[in-house]
């Protein structure tokens, strides 16, 4: 947990430096009052100062940090795979369209999380895909992405 929080502070300091550099290119004061760079500059400064304060506190042991790992054993892998599956889903929606991409997403995710029961996975995936299609396309009339398959 300690290492993780230290990394988070460093990322925040990096974000603050980026914000300060980027907002320095914008005007901080204008004739009409505050410029468009004023708020992002101030906030980047606040983030940077507070993250540095947090980092110093952790390194000097003045801020207590919970011991142990940040997640359950094997949990990080499940989360990472889920993130990858979701990324694949978004890419597939654009390529093959909403309906087949959603069906494939359900199949892989239910199979991955549900300890691999093939028939059950296929049936629930088909039902869920139809359920979402019915809600968003048929009921709410949302224009869902259509791929080269035409669905």
């Amino acid at each position: 947990m300690r290492k993780g929080l230290i990394t988070a502070c460093i990322v925040l300091i990096g974000l603050a430096i980026y914000g300060i550099i980027e907002s320095s290119r914008l005007e901080r004061t204008m004739q009409m009052g505050i410029g468009i760079g004023f708020l992002p500059f101030c906030m980047s400064l606040v983030i940077g100062v507070l993250a540095a304060f947090l980092l110093t506190g952790i390194l000097r042991g003045r801020i207590e940090v919970k011991e142990g790992s940040i997640c359950e054993k094997g949990g990080a892998w499940r989360v990472l795979i889920l993130v990858l599956l979701l990324m694949g889903y978004v890419v597939l929606i654009e390529m093959i369209g909403y309906v087949p991409a959603t069906f494939l997403f359900f199949c892989t995710t239910v199979f991955f999380l549900g300890k691999g029961r093939i028939v059950r996975t296929l049936l629930t995936s088909a039902a869920f895909t139809f359920f979402l299609f019915a809600i968003f396309r048929l009921w709410l009339k949302s224009p869902l992405p259509v791929g080269f398959l035409g669905i």
Binding site: Y89, T109, V110, T124, F128
Partner: peptide, 9 residues
């Protein structure tokens, strides 16, 4: 295993 993909989708 059913709830997670449903919420994500």
């Amino acid at each position: 295993s059913l709830l997670i993909p449903l919420i994500l989708a």
